[in-house]
């Protein structure tokens, strides 16, 4: 292991680090919005839209991000829609993540106990009031663990962006390996870089899970 090589590569990795961070951030936020919309459509059983949502969720949950990206990046231009690699990456991540987040939210809503809903109903609440005051607050809290797992998952998935040459962390490392044939050093930095993002984040998310759970259910 040659520390000098590592040191010289740090500026490039810092660039890739920033790229990974902002792509993840945009992807995760977008995925949350898409996922929430989808789960609301399913919760309120909106006709037609509901069927479309479940087709979307199943399609994207059961296919790899890589082929979704290839489709966006290579196949769409043939149909007359050309997008930059970064645009394709973000769209791909949002749609992949949206499907997972939708499952997370829906799981939370479904997890709210039936007796809670019954007791709200017995007080004369409308369906909307039940959703607003009982199912959503408790359901969000129940869905936090799976949303947290999805966040970690999506950040790791950005490594696949390297196949369409988006200069994020993994792509940076692969480029450097290609140029200088020093795989040990660059892969070492790469692993450390992911650890720097993911270890604190996963600790933070675990803490948040506990807090939200306590805040809502008191255990």
């Amino acid at each position: 292991m040659d520390w000098q090589i590592i040191q010289q590569s740090l500026p490039q990795f810092a660039q890739g680090f920033r790229e990974t961070l902002w792509l993840s951030l945009v992807g995760i936020l977008g995925a949350m919005v898409v996922g929430l919309c989808c789960s609301l459509i399913q919760y309120f059983k909106v006709p037609v839209a509901r069927q479309l949502v479940s087709v979307y969720v199943e399609l994207f949950r059961n296919t790899p991000l890589l082929i979704q990206l290839f489709f966006l990046y290579y196949a769409f231009p043939v149909m007359g829609l050309k997008m930059s690699a970064v645009t394709c990456g973000i769209i791909g991540l949002i749609f992949l993540g949206g499907a997972y987040m939708a499952e997370g939210f829906t799981g939370g809503f479904d997890g709210v106990s039936k007796t809670q809903v019954d007791s709200g109903r017995a007080l004369g609440m409308s369906n909307w009031q039940l959703a607003r005051y009982i199912v959503f607050p408790q359901g969000f809290s129940l869905s936090v663990p799976s949303l947290a797992a999805n966040i970690i998952f999506l950040i790791k998935e950005t490594s696949i962006f390297s196949v369409i040459a988006i200069p994020e962390l993994t792509n940076t490392a692969l480029d450097l390996i290609g140029l200088y044939y020093r795989s040990n050093e660059y892969l070492f930095v790469l692993v450390i870089a992911y650890a720097i993002i993911l270890i604190p984040l996963s600790l933070l998310l675990t803490w948040l899970e506990k807090r939200v759970r306590y805040g809502t259910f008191g255990d």
Partner: peptide, 9 residues
């Protein structure tokens, strides 16, 4: 109800 079901939040 038997399970009281106060709203925990």
């Amino acid at each position: 109800f038997q399970s009281y079901d106060l709203f925990p939040n």
